[in-house]
């Protein structure tokens, strides 16, 4: 406990950066993921191929490599800090998983709904936006929830590029306080404060959705 009191400002600031990176990446990956899910489902070969390639690429390559790429290679052309490089990499990486969840959600919606909406004079885009996507998101909630939990956990990648996040500060405290054991346990509790409510919330939602069926 003395460790926590002594270094509390570092832990809080790390927690803040982790929260910030997670929120930015959450919004960005949700937008990008939906976009790429729609691309994947496009009837045009080129678009769907592009969408598939994007998703396959980011699903099969480690987040660390992507982060290092932004931090070491892209940052040479466009100036960015470790925090920015890490958050961008995190957003792109997560968006591929979100695309898969959203795509599965869209596919689970009865085709008749789309056809009905089109027959009623809605354009494809309108039908997608108003009729299909809202339902698809509802179906995708459990798997989206899991992706968000993964996102918060994966934000620890920022520690590799001096991203000032919780893990980064935890390493600093561990190295300067002697007491690695306690330092990492405190870091763990901070992460759980973010992820456990998400996890139990998802379980609750999932059970309720199943109950409704």
């Amino acid at each position: 406990m003395t460790i926590f009191n002594h270094y509390s400002s570092l832990f809080y600031s790390g927690f803040g950066y982790t929260l910030l990176a997670s929120l930015i990446a959450l919004v960005a990956s949700l937008v990008l993921g939906t976009l790429f899910a729609l691309l994947q489902l496009s009837k045009k070969r080129l678009w769907s191929g592009l969408g598939n390639a994007y998703v396959q690429f980011f699903r099969n390559v480690p987040l660390l490599i992507i982060t290092l790429f932004f931090y070491l290679a892209v940052a040479k052309v466009i100036k960015m800090t470790g925090f920015v490089a890490g958050t961008v990499a995190l957003s792109l990486y997560t968006s591929a998983f979100i695309a898969e969840s959203v795509r599965a959600g869209i596919l689970s919606i009865d085709k008749g709904q789309m056809e009905g909406a089109l027959a009623n004079g809605l354009s494809y885009g309108q039908a997608m936006r108003v009729i299909v996507l809202p339902q698809a998101f509802k179906v995708a909630i459990p798997s989206l929830g899991n992706q968000f939990i993964n996102l918060v956990k994966n934000s620890s990648i920022l520690a590799f590029v001096g991203g000032l996040d919780l893990m980064y500060q935890g390493n600093l405290v561990a190295a300067s306080s002697f007491d690695t054991f306690t330092s990492y346990i405190i870091v763990g509790i901070f992460y759980l404060v973010l992820t456990l409510p998400l996890s139990y919330g998802m379980q609750y939602l999932e059970e309720r959705l199943q109950g409704n069926r």
Partner: peptide
């Protein structure tokens, strides 16, 4: 001020 030595060299 640049990010690292490699970019300073560049």
């Amino acid at each position: 001020a640049l990010q690292d030595y490699a970019s300073a060299m560049q």
